[in-house]
């Protein structure tokens, strides 16, 4: 009886560890259900003060209310449009600067250390300054997200280009490939998966940047709504917007992971 039971469990585990899409979906559902259950238990028995924590049901109710009043869509539009405009610009700039750094030793020696130093500064601290320069709203959000997001893309682009197998470059040279041909057929394709993983990291940073920008000054957006809800002790609405933000992060992460696998299938093995 117990051996049959353990066999069944083993079958379940084997399925869950599998690579199938159904297994991945089931893994996600189980973990979401677990989090919701623990949350519900804590909110019912441990932290009953609704100012501090509300049960999941209240949060979904708040989410429905925000959706019905249209506030959810106004805020979503403000946040998504700012990130959607700034993110591609940041990726292009990051790849461009990374290319320049990888191809010019002079630039790498002079600008490289400065960029490294800049990267280690928590740039979000400059948010009030950008708002003073550019005012409340789209422009300051755009600039803050762009600047904060460039770095992971820039660093992985440079790393990827410089990490190219020497033997692949030598083989291309052996076929008398020009410098440009070596770049387009060897170093750039080699760097692509590195760049995509940089973009994946950048997406998470872009969401941090947009929230900070909206905390400091704006009239709409998830960050604005979170701050407003916090100030009026509306914990349910606050958590509703945090969940929306989480969804946005998850969607990007899933998409870029898929893109990485798609573009570099040989790195899986």
């Amino acid at each position: 009886m117990s051996t049959a039971g353990s066999l069944t469990w083993r079958g379940v585990y084997d399925f869950l560890e599998g690579r199938s899409r159904a297994a991945a979906l089931l893994r996600m559902l189980i973990s979401v259900a677990f989090v919701l259950a623990v949350w519900q238990l804590i909110a019912t028995y441990l932290v009953t003060n609704k100012l501090l924590l509300v049960p999941p049901a209240d949060v979904f109710e708040a989410l429905g209310k925000e959706g019905a009043s249209g506030a959810l869509w106004t805020n979503a539009l403000a946040t998504v449009s700012a990130v959607g405009a700034a993110f591609p610009v940041a990726v292009l700039l990051g790849v461009g600067i990374g290319l320049a750094l990888a191809s010019s030793r002079l630039l790498a020696l002079t600008a490289g250390p400065m960029l490294t130093a800049l990267n280690s500064v928590p740039l979000v601290a400059l948010a009030p300054l950008f708002i003073a320069w550019l005012g409340l709203g789209f422009a300051s959000k755009f600039v803050l997200v762009t600047i904060f997001t460039i770095f992971p893309v820039l660093v992985t682009t440079e790393t990827g280009l410089k990490a190219t197998d020497k033997i692949l470059i030598e083989a291309a040279r052996s076929f008398n490939a020009s410098r440009w041909q070596i770049f387009t057929t060897v170093t750039l394709p080699f760097a692509v998966p590195f760049i995509v993983s940089g973009i994946r990291v950048a997406w998470a940073r872009a969401l941090v940047a947009i929230i900070i920008a909206e905390f400091f000054g704006s009239f709409a957006g998830f960050g604005y709504a979170i701050l407003a809800a916090g100030q009026s002790f509306d914990t349910a609405t606050l958590l509703a917007y945090v969940i929306m933000l989480g969804m946005l992060g998850l969607m990007g992460s899933v998409f870029f992971e898929w893109l990485e696998r798609r573009l570099a299938p040989w790195r899986q093995e």
Partner: peptide
């Protein structure tokens, strides 16, 4: 070449 010099 001795090592794998194919484009993956």
């Amino acid at each position: 070449f001795q090592q794998d010099a194919l484009l993956p």
